[in-house]
Design a protein around this nucleic acid. Structure first.
Length: 423
RNA sequence: GAGCCUAUGGUGUAACGGCAGCACAACACACUGUGGAUGUGUUAGUAUGGGUUCGAAACCCAUUAGGCUCCCCA
C-alpha cells in the first residue's frame, strides 16, 4: 500500500462500472447528435501551444493547460478544448466541405486546475457545432440537441433546464445604461456571479467596478426583467423554433446567463441541474460568429455547445438514472467438471459462440460449487454442466440460473435450448 | 494562485495521549455433481515524512490526496 504509485492528480480510473457510465453517456450523446444529422469527428489530442495562444488569454495557456516541450524542443499541449482544432480543420477544407457543417465529437481533454466536485484535470467532453449559417433557428437546433440529450437520459424539465440569453440584447441594455464597452467583460462576470453572492456584497462589487447607483439599479432591473426577450428578434425566433422542435419545456429565458467567454456574439445558453448537489453547469454554448476568422480561417458564422462528462455523471448517479451495471457481457457459463473434460467444455463453448452467444468457460477445473457461485456473482443467466454421465450419453445439462430449473438435452440441441432461455 | 476542512483493513465506521475494535465485502470450511441463504473460521488497517512524549491513530510541522469557497471555467 505504502509504495503504490498514485494516479496523477485529477485523473480517474475507469473500472468496468465507471466505464459503463462513460459508455452510457457516450451512447446517449451519439444518439442525440445523430438524430439531428450531425457527423462524428475528432482532432488530435496533442496540439501546438500556438493554436490556443491565438485566441486564449495568457493565464489560460500558461496556467491551465498541460504544456511541455517534446523531444524536438517544440512546445505542445494536451488539448484543453476542441474549438480551435475544429476551426483549423474547417479552414483547411473550406473548399471541399458541404455547408452547413454539422459535426459532433466526444473525447478526452485536459485542464490544469484544482480538482473539485464536478471538476477533474482529465475529462471527456461532448462538442456539437454547426458552421456556416447564422440563423436563430440554427441556434435553436443546437439547444434542441442538448435538450434531447437531457430528455434521453431521463432528466425531466423539473430536474434540468436550459437557460437561454442573448449577448447582443444584453449589450444593448448596457448601452442604454451608459455602461461603456470596455466595462462589458467585468460587468458580464459580475452578472455571472450574482447567483452565488449576497445582494449587498454584489452591490458593493458593482460599485467597485465603477458603476454608479443608477447603473447598478438599472442592471438589476434588466436581470429581473423576464420579458426582456421580447425585445430581441433573435430570441423570439429561437423560442419559436424551440417550441416547434418539441423541447420548449426544458427552456427558460434567463437574462443573467452570460457565459465567461469573450467570443460569444449572440445567443448563449447554459443547462443546470435544478434539484441536485452540483451547482456547476451541465453544458453550455452559444453563437460565436467571429471565432473562425479570429483563428485564421475565412469568416464563417458558427454555433455550438460543449458538455463535460463529470457533472452529468454525478447528476445521473445522484438521480438513479444510470442503468444497472451488468458485470459481464456473457450470459452463459460453461462449467468444467474435471481435467478430463476440459476439451469437451471448450468445444461446447465454441459451439455456442459460433451461434452468436457470448459464452465464458470457467478457467479452472474446480468444484462446481465455486463455478456456480461465480456465475451467480457475475449475474449470468445460464450455466452448462458437462460431467462424466452426460459425456457418455452425449448430453449437456442446461441450467436456468434465474429460476434454478435445469434440463438435460442432446449436445446438438444445446444452442436451441440456451436461446430459448435467453429469449 | 489563496483560504478553510478532512484522511483508521477492500468499503463504511469506533477507540480520554495508554492492548486499534465493529459491520459489510473477500476467502476457506460446513456442502467431495449445482449459485443466491445460514453458521464457523481466516485474511486485512492508523495516507507519507519528521517532531513532542515514558507512551501518538489522537498533539505539532511538512508532504500527498480529497472536499468546500475564492479565482477560473477555453
Amino acid at each position: 500500500m505504502a509504495n503504490k504509485i498514485q494516479t496523477v492528480k485529477g485523473t480517474r480510473e475507469f473500472y468496468p462500472e465507471q466505464m459503463a457510465l462513460r459508455n452510457f453517456i457516450y451512447e446517449k450523446v451519439r444518439a442525440a447528435s445523430q438524430a439531428f444529422g450531425y457527423q462524428e469527428y475528432d482532432g488530435p489530442f496533442i496540439e501546438p501551444i500556438d493554436l490556443y495562444a491565438a485566441k486564449s488569454g495568457e493565464e489560460l495557456v500558461k496556467k491551465q493547460s498541460f504544456t511541455f516541450q517534446d523531444r524536438g524542443g517544440d512546445f505542445v499541449t494536451l488539448r484543453p478544448e476542441l474549438t480551435p482544432s475544429l476551426a483549423r480543420m474547417i479552414a483547411a477544407k473550406q473548399g471541399e466541405l458541404t455547408f452547413p457543417v454539422r459535426w459532433w465529437s466526444f473525447g478526452p481533454f485536459w485542464r490544469y486546475e484544482s480538482p473539485q466536485k464536478g471538476r477533474t484535470r482529465e475529462f471527456f467532453q461532448w462538442n456539437v457545432d454547426m458552421i456556416g449559417v447564422d440563423t436563430p433557428e440554427a441556434d435553436a437546433e443546437l439547444i434542441a440537441v442538448a435538450a434531447s440529450f437531457l430528455r434521453s437520459v431521463g432528466l425531466t424539465p423539473r430536474q434540468a433546464a436550459i437557460f437561454v440569453n442573448n449577448r447582443s440584447l444584453i449589450n444593448a441594455q448596457f448601452d442604454a445604461l451608459d455602461i461603456p464597452p470596455e466595462k462589458r467583460v467585468d460587468v458580464s462576470n459580475l452578472i455571472d456571479r450574482r447567483a452565488k453572492m449576497k445582494p449587498e456584497a454584489w452591490d458593493e462589487n458593482g460599485l467597485e467596478l465603477g458603476l454608479n447607483r443608477n447603473q447598478l439599479e438599472g442592471l438589476k432591473g434588466v436581470l429581473e426583467n423576464y420579458e426582456l426577450w421580447k425585445q430581441s428578434e433573435e430570441l423570439v425566433r429561437v423560442f419559436d423554433a424551440l417550441e416547434a422542435l418539441g423541447v420548449k419545456e426544458y427552456i427558460k429565458f434567463e437574462p443573467g446567463v452570460m457565459r465567461g467567454l469573450l467570443y460569444y456574439t449572440s445567443t448563449v445558453f447554459e443547462a443546470f441541474d435544478l434539484t441536485g448537489s452540483v451547482r456547476r453547469s451541465i453544458l453550455g454554448g452559444g453563437r460565436y460568429d467571429n471565432l473562425l476568422a479570429d483563428v485564421g480561417g475565412d469568416p464563417l458564422p458558427a454555433t455550438g455547445f460543449a458538455m463535460g462528462d463529470v457533472v452529468i455523471g454525478i447528476i445521473l448517479q445522484e438521480k438513479g438514472l444510470v442503468p444497472e451495471f451488468d458485470p459481464t457481457p456473457a450470459d452463459v457459463l460453461v462449467t468444467v467438471f474435471d481435467e478430463s473434460l476440459w476439451k469437451k467444455s471448450l468445444e461446447l463453448s465454441t459451439q455456442l459462440r459460433n451461434a452468436g452467444i457470448a459464452t465464458m468457460v470457467y478457467p479452472e477445473a474446480v468444484k462446481l460449487q465455486k463455478q456456480f457461485k461465480f456465475a451467480d456473482r457475475m449475474k449470468m443467466k445460464v450455466a452448462l454442466v458437462l460431467g462424466p454421465e452426460e459425456a457418455e450419453k452425449g448430453l449437456v445439462v442446461v441450467k436456468n440460473l434465474l429460476n434454478g430449473e435445469q434440463v438435460q438435452v442432446q449436445t446438438e440441441a444445446v444452442v436451441e435450448e440456451v436461446k430459448k432461455l435467453l429469449g
